[in-house]
């Protein structure tokens, strides 16, 4: 059996805190686009930056974004959290500095590369925009370990089961 269960709010927040890397969905003219990003979760906000013009174009036209974050051990053992909200571009220097500091702290292995970029004037120019998401919905699903079920079936209305 692979059993998939809806995650509780605390568990979802822990995943968002732990991972720091996800897949951002944006939409322009009904065309979706997905890009991998590093982010920092500072409850309740998610901060991320982009070095790419394409994302800023999409987000300035349509600020609605969807961030998907996952922890995958194997195809039968995973958690996935999805957060929806509007991405707001930070404009104040102090806010941008604080957000970038958060993101760099969260991603220690990225830090040498990005720190180099961030301390250089030209490197700062590469960071096109820093955003904050205030998620209005967070949803999460996870597999249960094989052979384990939680509660009686009547208590699990949210649970979807794939029979094996």
């Amino acid at each position: 059996m692979i059993e998939i269960e809806e995650m509780g709010e605390k568990e979802m927040k822990r995943v968002l805190e732990r991972v720091g890397y996800g897949h951002l969905g944006v939409v322009r003219d009904n065309r979706p686009y997905v890009v991998p990003i590093h982010y920092n979760y500072d409850e309740p906000h998610i901060y991320f930056y982009t070095t790419e013009g394409m994302k800023t174009e999409y987000i300035s036209q349509n600020p609605e974004v969807c961030l998907q974050v996952e922890e995958v051990n194997d195809s039968k053992n995973w958690r996935s959290v999805i957060a929806w909200g509007k991405a707001e571009r930070l404009t104040e220097e102090a806010e941008i500095e604080k957000a970038m500091k958060f993101i760099l702290e969260r991603n220690p292995t990225l830090t040498p590369a990005l720190n180099l970029m961030w301390i250089d004037t030209w490197g700062r120019a590469l960071v096109k925009a820093v955003y904050r998401i205030d998620p209005h919905i967070i949803s999460g699903r996870m597999t249960l370990p094989e052979g384990e079920t939680r509660g009686a079936p009547s208590d699990n209305q949210n649970k979807s089961t794939i029979k094996n």
Binding site: V26, V27, P32, V34, L67, W78, S80
Partner: peptide, 19 residues
């Protein structure tokens, strides 16, 4: 074998992991 599918519904993006 595993990716992230983005789709759009009324200009709302949705991303799901996918085999």
């Amino acid at each position: 074998k595993h990716g992230h599918l983005g789709c759009s519904f009324h200009d709302q993006p949705y991303v799901v992991p996918m085999h």
